[in-house]
């Protein structure tokens, strides 16, 4: 469960594990976006990642989401070492084991809600009929059963984010990554969408939410605080997804220094 030492026997229970991960960008001078990160994300967990701009949140996202490879260290996603994969294998892994939810929704503008949800399966070669059935199911689960044929521009922000969530779930991924999922939503819609996240977590989905909003992070089981490319501390919270029971303050007893 802790960051270090995720052995093979732990793979079954671990969706993602990072070991001493470093990511360095060469922008004139080397920039250490991640500087030795150990983290393990158990299956079915709900993790929030917090940190100021430039703390390495996005880089961590990209690594966990198989969009990028680490400069050093290992990232194991659903049992596969990302750095050892070819581009094509990495893309295939991303398509089947990772679901993305973005701040700006990132739906395909000319595809209907249903087609957007079905898009990941299109690239997996799933049959059209099967794809549409699965997408319709998921849209119903996120409460958009009556909006399947609408284009993104015909949907509200909250509805769009629910379509995006449905899309992230369509391949039954090992992990769903949400980058500021409520950043573009008003308070009320935000609550609705986050409630939905909670529901899917309860149903067994592994969630990682990147945010800089404390109240969004508090819905998770634990909060990973990043600072300057390192994990500053990991804050364990009570039952996830229940805003009615505020967690302990950030400097409370359950926080734990990581290195």
């Amino acid at each position: 469960m802790t960051g270090s030492g995720a052995g093979t026997e732990a793979d079954e229970a671990t969706a993602v594990s990072l070991e001493d991960v470093r990511k360095t960008y060469q922008l004139g001078e080397p920039v250490h976006a991640l500087d030795g990160v150990d983290l393990s994300i158990p299956r079915g967990s709900y993790t929030a990642i917090m940190g100021p701009s430039g703390s390495g949140k996005s880089t961590l996202m990209n690594l966990v989401g198989c969009l990028d490879t680490p400069t050093e260290g290992t990232v194991v996603v659903d049992g596969a070492d990302v750095a050892a994969l070819t581009d094509r294998e990495r893309t295939a892994l991303r398509g089947t084991t990772v679901g993305f939810v973005f701040q700006t929704f990132n739906l395909m503008p000319r595809l209907t809600a249903l087609e957007n949800v079905a898009l990941p399966q299109l690239f997996q070669g799933v049959d059209r009929g099967e794809r549409r059935e699965r997408a319709r199911d998921l849209l119903e689960r996120v409460g958009l059963g009556d909006r399947t044929d609408h284009l993104p521009k015909e949907l509200s922000g909250g509805q769009r984010q629910r379509v995006a969530l449905a899309r992230a779930l369509v391949n039954d991924p090992a992990i769903v990554l949400a980058d500021e999922p409520s950043g573009n939503l008003d308070t009320e819609t935000e609550a609705e969408v986050l409630d939905l996240f909670g529901e899917f977590h309860d149903a067994g989905t592994t969630l990682v939410v990147v945010t800089h909003e404390r109240h969004v992070a508090e819905r998770a089981e634990r909060i990973v605080h990043l600072l300057d490319g390192r994990i500053e501390r990991i804050e364990e919270l009570g039952s996830a997804g229940d805003p009615g029971e505020p967690a302990e303050p950030a400097d409370g007893g359950r926080e734990r220094e990581d290195r």
Partner: peptide
């Protein structure tokens, strides 16, 4: 470009 990014993120191969 953004659409290409989306497609690749959800598993589109080159």
């Amino acid at each position: 470009t953004r659409e290409i990014g989306i497609m690749k993120a959800v598993g589109a191969q080159n």
